[in-house]
Design a protein around this nucleic acid. Structure first.
Lengths: 227, 227
DNA sequence: ATCCTAGCAAAAATCGATATTATCTTAGCA
DNA sequence: TGCTAAGATAATATCGATTTTTGCTAGGAT
């Protein structure tokens, strides 16, 4: 994934929306490094747009905890730290546990089908390029929670997912090979969820996160690039 | 609390910051009704500032779930509904339970003192005007959680607190008398927290929310003004 | 009568320029 | 040599005007 790809917006939506999407991608993927100062003028030229859309997009990203805003002193990307990573991991476990249980509790046939579909799409895309797979991977995980009837909770989970995946990117793509391992884990979560076994599904989901988390922690080792 | 008070900013900080604070107050307090369209021009004149600060403040408020942004179609205040209220209540119980336990787990003398102090200030302000008390009430509740070593979780709780208090305002100030009742509940939570009894503190906190919640639900009755 | 569409008015979004604020540099001084 | 203050520089924040986009309305065709 090179930087040019990131700056090219999908071509639809307002300038603000495009800037938002591009900047988000750049931050999550690590193209913009943690703690990096985000100068309006530089971004303006990079994304070929005016200052207003940039500024507004950055304001929106603040809500996602991906950008920090210091009044009168501009914007910078969110910092990373072992503590922050641990916090995200813990919160994901707690919040997704809750969301998944509610989702399963309210299970419907339509929801089950959505989950199965999302899983299938993700599986099929394993061979495709990373970016595409990552999107579908998120969709699968969110599909599991989608039935929780709790928009705010879902928003929190979505945010935490993105914060977490940012660490994945920062740790480098050394985790490519990991995919084979998680295939089974995903399948296990799916089957337990569809079977309506909330305890089992949640247990597998949490273990999935914990294993991936400690794997990542190990990868990041000395936190050389971080704050 | 009249509308003029709300439009007068504290005089410090950037125009964006002032607009943010003012608009936030207006939305939480109900001066701007749920689902109301937020026209830039109107707000610009009301707050005596330019369009850019307004626009940016609204973008910031989007992150707090107090404002909804529809691309190319402007902003509107977040809608309210019984479902939304129930969701907020449930999430508060779950997230604050987690935060409170972590906070107590990591208890220090400094934290205990902060909590006691916050409680005292809130108590002393019972006679003062509503706005002041509300601020201190929030500070007390946040002080309980402040030691959780989890900034993101605290941010979530803070957001949920504001979303909840908005319903309090919308339900009308008919709940003034209620304060006397909650005094005991607050004291109970405080003592359990300071004593380091996480189970008891959490139980009391959750009950506090549930009781207040069902009380509010009753008050709102037919949801006449809502969506 | 209903559906479609062109034109108009209102609002949002964006731009370019200016004012404001922070940051960096350097000269003066103890 | 180290420190303070003034000036220069760079970046942010804000404004006012312009460009798009939307939502509404009236007129015409089916």
């Amino acid at each position: 994934m090179n930087l040019m790809d990131l700056t090219v917006a999908s071509g639809e939506g307002s300038a603000t929306q495009q800037a938002y999407t591009s900047l988000r991608r750049m931050i999550v993927s690590g193209a913009l490094k943690p703690g990096e100062k985000l100068k309006i003028e530089a971004l303006r030229q990079m994304l070929h747009t005016g200052a207003s859309p940039i500024r507004e997009a950055l304001s929106l990203l603040t809500s996602d905890n991906l950008v920090e805003r210091i009044d009168q002193r501009g914007f910078r990307t969110a910092d990373v730290s072992p503590e922050n990573f641990a916090e995200i991991l813990l919160l994901r476990c707690k919040l997704e546990d809750l969301a998944l249980r509610q989702s399963i509790e309210a299970a419907t046939q339509a929801w089950e089908e959505q989950v199965v579909l999302a899983h299938h799409r993700m599986q099929r895309a394993k061979a495709e390029k990373s970016e595409r797979f990552e999107d579908l991977h998120k969709e699968f995980h969110m599909a599991l929670l989608a039935n929780a009837q709790s928009p705010i909770l879902l928003k929190f989970c979505s945010q935490l997912y993105d914060l977490n995946i940012r660490y994945r990117f920062l740790a480098g793509s050394a985790l490519e090979y990991k995919r084979r391992d998680v295939t089974d884990e995903h399948a296990g979560i799916l089957s337990a969820a569809v079977a309506g076994d909330a305890d089992l599904a949640s247990e597998r989901l949490i273990r999935h996160y914990e294993v991936t988390g400690s794997f990542l922690s190990g990868l990041m080792g000395d936190w050389s690039g971080a704050a």
